[in-house]
């Protein structure tokens, strides 16, 4: 690799100070599983790599029934997946964490890094979007909160300014009688990048059996991960019948704008979105 400077500040304050004083390109490193590969491939050439794993706030993993889930930016996919409240209350997020790369990658790569890398195919992002996740960003003027939906601005592009750091991702408490599912399609069983991925979350009123909230988020079928809002609106207020789910699949397919590339054609990806939306919805009916 090309040489670069390195810092591992023990506090957030020191990290922000380093960021504000740096002259060249600074790249934070959590797991490094995307960053180091990108430096090796000469896609980026940072002058300073800033290790955020020593910062206490970046290592928080905490669930509170009233507050929801806090995932520090440096917490690994393995740790998120094996945290019991995640499997219990945010099942699609645990499923997605176990799809990112291999065991070795999951042990190192963080959910926060998956978010900041801003790949359209990021597996953990559709589940986060379906839980209305919020990015907590620290910068020179204090911290600000950005709904994750507004965080992604294009492939590899985010709302982060050069002097800012993602500190944690917040997920509000799940709704009662809700469930979720994330599925992706790859042409093999392991170790691949989604041709298309769909996360669904639904909440149902047990009295009336109608859907009180629906969230559908798509990966690998637009320049950023996106929500399929018309499909969500089709479901909210209705019973989750086979007919409603089928129509939601159609609406999700029309919400996306996939490209044709080596992994699949645009038409194939739309078809995948339709099928995966139906499957994730059917499999996320509250237990």
């Amino acid at each position: 690799m090309q040489p670069f400077d390195y810092a591992a500040p023990p506090t957030l304050e020191e990290a922000l100070q380093i960021l504000s004083q740096a002259s060249g390109l600074v790249r934070p490193i959590a797991g490094g599983t995307d960053l180091i590969a990108q430096i090796k491939e000469r896609r980026i050439a940072p002058s300073l790599v800033l290790n955020v794993k020593e910062i206490a706030e970046a290592n928080v993993l905490d669930y509170d029934p009233g507050q929801g889930l806090r995932i520090g930016a440096a917490v690994s996919c393995s740790d998120v997946a094996s945290y019991a409240p995640v499997a219990a209350h945010y099942p699609s997020l645990a499923q997605a964490c176990l799809l990112v790369g291999s065991t070795q990658i999951q042990n190192r790569g963080s959910v926060g890094g998956n978010v900041c890398n801003a790949a359209p195919s990021a597996d953990t992002v559709p589940p986060l979007l379906t839980y209305d996740a919020v990015a907590v960003i620290a910068g020179p003027g204090g911290s600000r909160r950005v709904p994750l939906e507004d965080f992604f601005q294009g492939p590899g592009k985010t709302a982060l300014q050069p002097q800012e750091l993602l500190i944690e991702v917040l997920l509000p408490p799940p709704l009662p009688n809700s469930n979720s599912r994330y599925l992706r399609f790859i042409p093999r069983e392991e170790m691949d990048i989604a041709v298309a991925g769909v996360g669904s979350m639904v909440a149902v009123d047990p009295q009336t059996n109608t859907c009180t909230r629906a969230r559908i988020a798509l990966a690998s079928v637009a320049p950023t991960p996106i929500r399929a809002k018309e499909a969500e609106r089709r479901l909210e207020g209705s019973p989750l019948t086979e007919e409603a789910i089928r129509e939601a699949g159609e609406l999700a397919a029309s919400a996306c704008s996939p490209i044709s590339d080596i992994r699949g054609s645009a038409a194939y990806r739309k078809e995948l979105v339709k099928v995966l939306t139906r499957r994730t919805l059917s499999q996320s009916l509250p237990r």
């Binding site: 390195y6 490094g32 180091i36 590969a37 790599v49 065991t103 070795q104 190192r108």
Partner: peptide, 9 residues
């Protein structure tokens, strides 16, 4: 934990 030494500084 099992990790890839090629992706760690």
């Amino acid at each position: 934990k099992a990790v890839n030494a090629c992706l760690i500084l």
